[in-house]
Design a protein around this nucleic acid. Sequence first.
DNA 1: TTGAAAGCGATACCAT
DNA 2: ATGGTATCGCTTTCAA
Lengths: 336, 336
Amino acid sequence: MSITIKDIAKKANVSITTVSLIMNNKCHNIGEDTIKRVRSIIAEHNYRPNALARGLITNKTRTIGLLVPNITNPFFAEITKGVEDGLSEHNYNVFLCNSYNDIHKEKMYINVLKERFVEGVIISSTNTVTQDYYTYLKEQGIAFVILDRHDSQLQYNGIVVDDWKGGYLATQHLLQLGHRKIGCIAESKGLCNINERLRGYQDALKAHGVLYDEKLVVSADLTIEGGCQAALGLMAEQNVTAIFATNDLTAIGVYEAAIQLGKRIPEDVSVVGFDDISFAHYLSPKLTTIRQPIYEIGRRAAANFIYVLQNNTFVQSTEVLDVELIIRNSTASPRL
Amino acid sequence: MSITIKDIAKKANVSITTVSLIMNNKCHNIGEDTIKRVRSIIAEHNYRPNALARGLITNKTRTIGLLVPNITNPFFAEITKGVEDGLSEHNYNVFLCNSYNDIHKEKMYINVLKERFVEGVIISSTNTVTQDYYTYLKEQGIAFVILDRHDSQLQYNGIVVDDWKGGYLATQHLLQLGHRKIGCIAESKGLCNINERLRGYQDALKAHGVLYDEKLVVSADLTIEGGCQAALGLMAEQNVTAIFATNDLTAIGVYEAAIQLGKRIPEDVSVVGFDDISFAHYLSPKLTTIRQPIYEIGRRAAANFIYVLQNNTFVQSTEVLDVELIIRNSTASPRL
DNA sequence: TTGAAAGCGATACCAT
DNA sequence: ATGGTATCGCTTTCAA
């Protein structure tokens, strides 16, 4: 049904080899007029080579897999866009997979992607890259770029941001405003980037001579609902004057909790988020948060891949991108 | 490098035909013990057939393409999730493409997807499906499902919501609250679903004996910024007491404009959105909006595809899903 | 400067 | 109940 290289060859009165050579720009030794004739026939029929057949023989499919926990989270949507943009410039396409933070689903997808012969997989936010899991990935014999995972011991291609600094900056900001009872919403599965943010929180506390109180740190799902639950406890039982939410979604949850408890932000409680998703700017009050270059993370992951694949090298390096405190209206000095 | 069907056949002392038959569960006539032996060898080596080779011969790649304008818009992220969920249950994978509402990019992607031999393409929100474009799609010889496009004349597989009803419901709600000067933020490219919403707005006005004033309808980019610009004009120059924003993103823009002009929602101006993206619930005040079953749209699109592909039939039908008015806190009676 | 033929990894038809 | 072989559409090596 679809037009093939054979058809083109026949119409142009040349062999399929010639057509192939021309299509791949390996036609140094082919006559100018032959090239022109073939090219025009290709154009005329809008012929495009079958990527499957091509991939089968070259082992280059120009596809990569992207594993995100949930595309519905604006953070991952933004990363996805960065990846797609970065890749499409190099004529790569992306298979999108939602892992729902389920490691089994993740492994299942890796298998699926392998049988599709993707040239690599970008993994955004696995549960945690344990030594076991890392070994597993290595065994797969595909290139990986892993996002958001710090681990000085495990060596892999990765893009991360300076999560520690983010946590420090956020907490320092609250301390400088005069807060002393600062809650923190972390999570329970031991995600290393969140742990880094927590370390930043602790170190800032220490630097300002404030005693670390583990009752003020609660674990939550990193969702709006999770943040709301956590904040409810923090505000009602611990009477914090400020909350550092380790991502913006949970910060939105804090807003929701504040409404339920009749507390005002920032008068009664200050909030700092993390990520700076676009909606942070449109909350009321506008959210003070730690900005990470989300789109850029996706672009870098893509660029990293292009580099690795083009140079046929397994670099093992982690790029660290910077973060920045964006002060908006959700933070103020505590009332006396 | 990777293990192939040949390797399995050799290890099991059978022909590749046998292995193939077993893998595809066409082994009615094959000895129990042979099956067991082969199966265990397959499992032992974690062998999975090369999807490229398979697709090359069967013309079934179990992949589909999904074209969305911008994955960063929560509306499309939600649709994407629905599509991916619906498809992955049937072992289909999805190529994600951002068209940025650029018809050239869209056509380019369709070509790319064709050469990857996707079994079909789900197109979410093209500029507009004109007769020309529709003809173009038909010529491609792939199955399409088109989302969000009403057109009784053009026949294709489609999923839409009752946009007219949504526009009517939104406007009626405002009228019943006592508003008479109701602005509407539409868009300029003639998207048919937005036009339907506008028709609903006009019909509601008429039904309530309110004269339609075209100065109250402004075109905008369907983004937060676009909505903000449009609302600025509507509020400052036209002095409307209420605004019907034809999507939630522009409604958020209205909130922003209200802040800039020092107006309060809903005391000074009421706002109704459209879509009910998850953030609508977390705006302050919470957004009154028209809910469409976004995730479900994606699922249905996927289901439609599965049906079409499994039955090898080109159904040409449009499913219409219902919408619903969700009253929250962004609407109130106008002050006297 | 061009073409013939082998082969990528699977499926499917026809034998046995 | 199992195997041989053509074939899918292309790239690549070698020969002419």
